[in-house]
Amino acid sequence: MRKDLLLLAFIALLVAVLISGTKIQSVDEYYLTHIDDIREDSETVTISIRADTILQNWDKLSPELRSEKYVPKDGVILKETEYVLRPGDTVFDILHRTVRHNRIHMEFQGADENAFGSVYIKGIHHLYEFSCGPLSGWMYAVNGTFPDYGVSKYVLEDGDVIEFHYTCDLGRDVGHEFKRNMNENEVKVK
């Protein structure tokens, strides 16, 4: 009898919560809905994700990706958006929160899985390295400069502007030039 009363009380409480319109969220859902609660004292960064270079290289794009579903008409996957900067945030931290918040597909390789010791962005919005030719893939710039190290090594500061660009020509089509170091066989940023 006592168990039945407790069960009945629990069911009544549950019905009252549902009727009152209370939204029950998982921790992940709560985090994603409050990710961009910017206050006056918040430090912030801005991020955008663009693939407009593909529009000039449409013939090189893998046929299965030739759709507005993957490449928007203007090439903008994510317009410039402001996010709260937390202490120690890297470019990867902001990108990861951004794509989760906006439900944009992303695939990456962990820092411990490659020789560079940094996270490697394999694909964003179903666009991968080599999806638009042999020199294509994702690059990032902070405040207009293309860093010479990985996304999980670049620690951000208040006011930084992050841009992710899909390149079809090893960065030349997005304003980046590589310079070969004569003493080593590796690519260095100019």
Rank of each mutant, 00 (worst) to 15 (best):
V174F: 07
P87H: 11
T53I: 07
M182V: 13
P134Y: 09
V189E: 15
P147A: 09
S118Q: 11
K122A: 11
V71R: 00
D158L: 05
D158R: 14
K179C: 11
D160I: 00
V84L: 05
P87L: 06
S118F: 09
L65Y: 05
H96L: 15
M106L: 05
G117H: 13
C132N: 10
L127A: 01
T81M: 06
V151W: 00
D74W: 09
T81Y: 03
S62H: 11
D89S: 04
E157H: 12
E107P: 05
A141V: 08
K79N: 12
G133C: 07
E113Q: 14
V187S: 10
A111R: 15
N57T: 12
K73A: 07
H105E: 14
L127G: 00
D173W: 02
D158S: 15
D52R: 10
Q56I: 08
E157M: 10
T46D: 12
V71F: 02
M106A: 05
V99M: 04
A51R: 00
A141C: 10
P134W: 11
V142Y: 02
D112G: 13
G150Q: 02
R172H: 08
F116Q: 12
V119T: 02
E157C: 13
M139C: 06
H105C: 14
M139P: 00
H165C: 06
E184W: 14
V91C: 02
T145P: 10
G110C: 12
D59I: 09
P87K: 07
N183W: 12
E82M: 06
E129W: 11
C132R: 04
G144C: 02
A111E: 15
A141E: 07
E177I: 10
K122Q: 13
G175H: 03
K69A: 07
H96Q: 13
A141Y: 05
A111F: 14
V189Q: 13
W138T: 00
G133H: 03
K69F: 06
F130E: 15
D160L: 01
V71D: 00
E184I: 14
Y154T: 07
G144F: 01
T46V: 13
G117F: 13
V155Y: 08
D74S: 09
F92D: 02
V76T: 12
W58I: 12
D169R: 10
E163I: 09
L170C: 09
D89L: 01
V71M: 02
D74A: 08
G133W: 02
S136H: 03
Y154P: 03
V151Q: 03
E177L: 12
K60V: 03
R86L: 15
L170F: 12
